[in-house]
Design a protein around this nucleic acid. Sequence first.
DNA 1: TCAGTGATTAGG
DNA 2: CTAATCACTGAG
Length: 187
Amino acid sequence: MVKNNKGNTISGTLNAGIKLSRDFFTRDVLEIAPVMPGKILVLKSAKGIIKRFRITDVEAYSGSEDLASHASKGRTARTEVMFHEGGHLYVYLIYGMYWMLNIVTGPAEIPQAILIRGIENYSGPGKLTKAIGIDKSFNDEDLITSGRIWIESDGVSPEIKTGPRIGIEYAGDYWKSVPWRFYTGSL
DNA sequence: TCAGTGATTAGG
DNA sequence: CTAATCACTGAG
C-alpha cells in the first residue's frame, strides 16, 4: 500500500505517456537531468498492476572528475553499473537502510547518473524507494527492456528550479556548490 | 544536533 | 581480517 507524507493512500494513477527510448538516456547527464522533473516513473507489479509517479526532484552526477560522484574513486564492484549504457538503473544501499534510485545516462564507459530525489507526494530519495518498493534487485535493470520499470513522458514540462546537491559535504568547495539539483515545487 | 544501520571500500 | 565512510531520515 502506498501512502503519502500525511498517511493518506495515494494510487499512482496518472494517465499513460510515451515511453522514453534508449536515445533519450544516452545523451549527456546535464542535458537530461534538467528535463527529468515532470517525467513519469512507471512500475508494474508482479500481479500486473501499473502505477505512475511524477518525478519532482533529481540530481546529476557526472563523470570521473565529479568528486561527489561514486565514480570519482574509479570503477569498483558497486560503481560498475555507472559505466554501463544510459537507461540502466544504479541502485545502492546507504546508511544501512535506504535504497537510492539512480538512472545511468550517457554512452557506455562514461560514468554518469541521475539520482531520483523526489516523486509526487514524497520528499527524499530514501522515502520514495521504500514507498514504491525499489531494492537491490533493480540494480542494473534496463529501463528500455524491463517489464517492471520504465519512464514515460506525457508532455508536461514544469518550471525548473536549480540548486546545489544535497549531502555531499565531502566533495570539496567546487563540486558541492555546482547547481546540479533540478526540482520543481509545482507538482 | 545526532544515532541508527549494514554494504562497500581501502588497507594491513 | 579491521575500521572508516556514507548521494538519508526522524527524533529532540
